[in-house]
Amino acid sequence: MAKKIEYKSEGLLTSFDYKRPSVKFSYWMMIAFLVLCCCIALLPVLWAFLSGFKELAEYYSQTPSLLPESISWKKLWDISIKLRIGPAFINSMILFAGCWVGEIVIGGLAGYTMSRLQPKGSKFLFALMLWTMMMPHTLTMVPMFMTWTDFPLIHINFQNTWIPLWTGSMANIFNILLFKNFFDGIPLSYVESAKLDGCSNLGIFARIMVPLSKPIISTVTVFVFNSTWNNFMGPFLYLKDADMATVALRLYTTSKDWTEPEQMLAAFIVMIPSVIVFAICSKQIMGNNVSVGVKG
């Protein structure tokens, strides 16, 4: 195990540094720090999850116990059956797919255009976007809903379509600025050499920028998945047709008559896909440094 660090060739500290004992010691300090962070992150979540197994009196007790009196896996199984997520899962995936395209393709392209191509006026657009973030958003839900239930000029009610939810994701300013930021940070030398090889702007985007931006794409994918997977208010307002219910909405409508411990277990069951998606994407976020990507 300890051998691993002797071959480390990437990042701030490399095998060269680890020849010094003080650095080696600080490596193990870092591991200790991470273990501490993991405790802070994991223990409360674990405790909340186990609380789901508690009886009502135990759950609301004024002196909360650390562990439930009994952990019955059957309870977990029963609840996951009762949730009947089936078709809702597909709906959630449709929602996610649309939002993903909106945020990654449209947003990513917009970020790239603003960072690299810089058409006239794009700087001003950047400033406008920053200001837009500062504007009051508390009440935007109401006029947005009015817009979608009676769309200007064409007077169409977009309820029970995916369009309002998909469209909303295309204008996630923070993620667009993230993309722009990321592209800003990519060294120019890569682009220059590609240009010399006669690559067009789009070619540069597809062949160099996209492979290089795997970390940021994965990061935003995680964000998109989490927000769409847990988005309950949007589907609640726009998807009134029971056949279109997403998992978050299904969780709400099914479990609102349940007791809180049961709701807690249900919420944790529904969270599993988020963990899986994160596990897959986070592999992309780390472990392939820029230099590696370009050598290929």
Binding site: M141, V142, P143, F145, M146, W148, T149, D150, F236, L237
Partner: peptide
């Protein structure tokens, strides 16, 4: 209609005619 009164989205529904 599964919606029951909730101040958080009452006005949204009312203004949207929903």
């Amino acid at each position: 209609d599964g919606w029951s009164f909730d101040l958080k989205n009452y006005m949204t529904k009312a203004e949207g005619g929903d």
